[in-house]
């Protein structure tokens, strides 16, 4: 029996997940790994929308921001438990996607790009401007997560929690791919007319995956807020949206493993670049350009092509 991409992805991720705490020398490194898992969760969701269904979103950080601010604002303004707040954030993010999804997803190409971009910016503007509610550009504190009396703390704890959530997210995403809806999404990516004629409700399929991607992003946002115990509007800004898109593209559009690899690169890289001090931004821009030029097909599909055929499909 051949090793499917599905099994390879799960195995490789599990191996990395289990081995990293043994390999990483300090809690700083564990914190970076935790950030990777969180960003990867959002990227895995975005990959369903972009890689699988071929629908670009340049505003995905908006949904991320909703999740992140939910865990800050829920406890502060509504007295909600952080966990319940996170849940509310997921629901809110999913509902927003459901509401705007149908008209937005009718758009194609650059029109879809500008509409999603606008959506993301609007969320960011609200988070940035409603100072009384959100604390504005300075950000806002997030209370500590307490699960049934257990105060969740420590780099290693968060490493395992976020990694487990990512594992669940990856499993669900892989399951979706190998289902009628997953095939429908890949089909409409290649030819919408052929998909429609084959009986696929294209509008509904796109909407479902858009809502799912929004929920993934919101969950990632909530985890980031709870982990950092602080959020700023930057989590929802345009640059973050672009980072998420870049993660999906660098890793390889349509590859769940690729989304994780892309998230790892774009999360670790800036940490490494801090040694360049003033040149940090310039180097980041340069790296993005170079990655896109030389790894256009994405890292994971690029590597898979090198393996003997049929080993990884």
């Amino acid at each position: 029996m051949r090793v499917s991409a599905r099994h390879a992805t799960l195995l490789l991720f599990l191996a990395a997940f289990a081995a990293l705490p043994l390999l990483l020398p300090s809690s700083f490194h564990l914190r970076v790994a935790t950030l990777v898992w969180i960003q990867a969760l959002a990227a895995v969701g975005l990959n369903l929308l972009m890689g699988l269904a071929g629908q670009v979103s340049l505003g995905h950080a908006g949904f991320f921001g909703i999740g992140a601010y939910a865990v800050a604002l829920g406890p502060r303004h509504l007295g909600l438990d952080p966990l319940l707040s996170a849940l509310a954030g997921l629901v809110l993010s999913g509902l927003l996607a459901l509401l705007v999804g149908r008209p937005i997803l009718r758009l194609r190409g650059h029109y879809l790009a500008v509409a999603t971009l606008g959506l993301g910016i609007l969320v960011w503007l609200v988070l940035n401007s409603e100072v009384a509610l959100t604390g504005g550009p300075d950000g806002i504190q997030v209370p500590r997560l307490v699960l049934f009396g257990w105060r969740v703390a420590g780099a290693e704890t968060w490493y395992w929690i976020t990694g487990a959530v990512l594992l669940l997210g990856v499993w669900l995403a892989l399951n979706l791919e190998d289902s009628p809806l997953g095939r429908a999404l890949r089909a409409l990516h290649d030819s919408e007319v052929a998909a429609r004629v084959a009986g696929i409700d294209v509008a509904r399929s796109k909407l479902v995956v858009f809502v799912m991607a929004a929920i993934y992003a919101a969950l990632a946002g909530s985890l980031l807020g709870l982990f950092n115990r602080f959020v700023t509007p930057q989590v929802a800004d345009f640059l973050h949206s672009i980072e998420l898109v870049t993660m999906v593209v660098i890793g390889g559009m349509g590859s769940t493993l690729g989304a994780i690899v892309g998230a790892a690169i774009l999360t670790v890289l800036p940490q490494a670049l801090t040694v360049f001090h003033d040149y940090e931004h310039a180097v980041l821009g340069l790296m993005i350009i170079l990655f896109m030029i030389f790894l256009r097909q994405g890292i994971v599909p690029g590597l898979a092509a090198l393996l003997p055929r049929r080993a990884v499909a």
Partner: peptide
Amino acid sequence: AIEPARGANAVTLIIITIGASILIRGLAQI
């Protein structure tokens, strides 16, 4: 940035130009 990526898909090209804008801004900051 654009010429070496000739033939890449629209999303890739968008990311390249955004990379270019980050680079230009970064250099301007210096």
